[in-house]
């Protein structure tokens, strides 16, 4: 079955620094896929290549069936990008930003009002965006990506730096889009976000995909449980498989004051696979 996003051996260098060292990804139609990794892992570079903003040095990438280097306009017609930095025009009002995008996308004008409503920006519609809060900018940014429903939506760290309320608004929007059949590729440093939104997750570090699967698969892959040891001044989490591991861990840490047994979280996966 053809994938909506298909990436093979993607490579990119900036000067002497290898940023992508052979990234492989397959994202199915209608799926929410999370690219999870620390700062500098290559998440943004991957997104920039997939959205035609950057040419790769090697490897191939197809989005919505089109080659990102050879058919950039066909890719652009199928995608929308919400980048890390809110891509809004501060000198225009919220409504003007949306109307501008509608004209550029050839979408009906009325869509601007619908989106203002949907993203709770009706009151701020006539104000210049430079006066918006970070959360409002982000909501407008997302709305601007949706003047025409994209086949694939790229979200590069959509909730970094947002307050909990705005974060929830972004999450709700992603869930709604996924229900409507939009394929979403999002990057995040937040495991909770990946766990909550994505059907499948790729952990990326040092320019390579080091783990890929559903949240449950990734968690199961490191251990069946995680033992949390609490000391007087700190705590430590150790992946364990069965009572023998627990016994060994306790013998190695006789000063532990209290213990808990958890299901592995994505944090455990993240710490176990990234170095």
């Amino acid at each position: 079955m053809p994938y909506t996003i298909e990436v093979e051996g993607l490579r990119k260098r900036f000067g002497n620094a290898t940023v992508l060292d052979g990234v492989d990804l397959q994202v199915q139609a209608g799926e929410v896929f999370a690219l999870l990794g620390p700062n500098g892992a290559g998440k943004t570079t991957t997104v920039r290549i997939l959205t035609t903003l950057l040419a790769p040095d090697g490897g191939t990438a197809r989005v919505a069936g089109h080659h990102v280097v050879r058919e950039p306009n066909a890719v652009r017609a199928a995608i929308s990008l919400t980048a890390q930095e809110a891509a809004v025009d501060g000198m225009l009002t919220g409504a003007e930003n949306l109307r501008m995008m509608a004209r550029l996308r050839g979408a009906p004008k009325g869509i601007a009002d619908d989106l203002l409503e949907r993203f709770d920006l009706v009151e701020a519609a006539g104000r210049r965006v430079e006066s918006y809060s970070g959360g409002m900018r982000r909501r407008l940014d997302l709305a601007m990506s949706l003047v025409q429903r994209p086949q694939v939506l790229f979200l590069d760290e959509p909730t970094t730096g947002l307050d909990p309320r705005s974060r929830r608004a972004v999450w709700d929007a992603v869930t709604t889009l996924a229900d409507e059949g939009v394929t979403v590729l999002l990057t995040t440093q937040y495991l909770e976000e990946a766990d909550r939104l994505a059907q499948r997750i790729a952990v990326i570090d040092g320019g390579r995909v080091i783990e890929q699967g559903t949240a449950a698969e990734l968690k199961a892959r490191i251990a069946s449980e995680v033992l949390e040891l609490h000391f007087a001044d700190r705590s430590q989490r150790i992946p364990v498989n069965g009572p023998d591991d627990v016994r060994r861990a306790l013998e190695a840490h006789p000063d532990a004051e209290r213990i808990e047994l958890h299901q592995p979280s994505l944090d455990d996966v993240f710490l176990a696979v990234t170095r």
């Binding site: 959205t51 035609t52 903003l53 652009r76 990008l81 980048a83 930095e85 809110a86 891509a87 550029l104």
Partner: peptide, 13 residues
């Protein structure tokens, strides 16, 4: 220097 240019660049125009 602002992110808005990336939005324009990812449009089929």
């Amino acid at each position: 220097t602002t992110g808005v240019i990336d939005r324009f660049r990812t449009l089929p125009i």
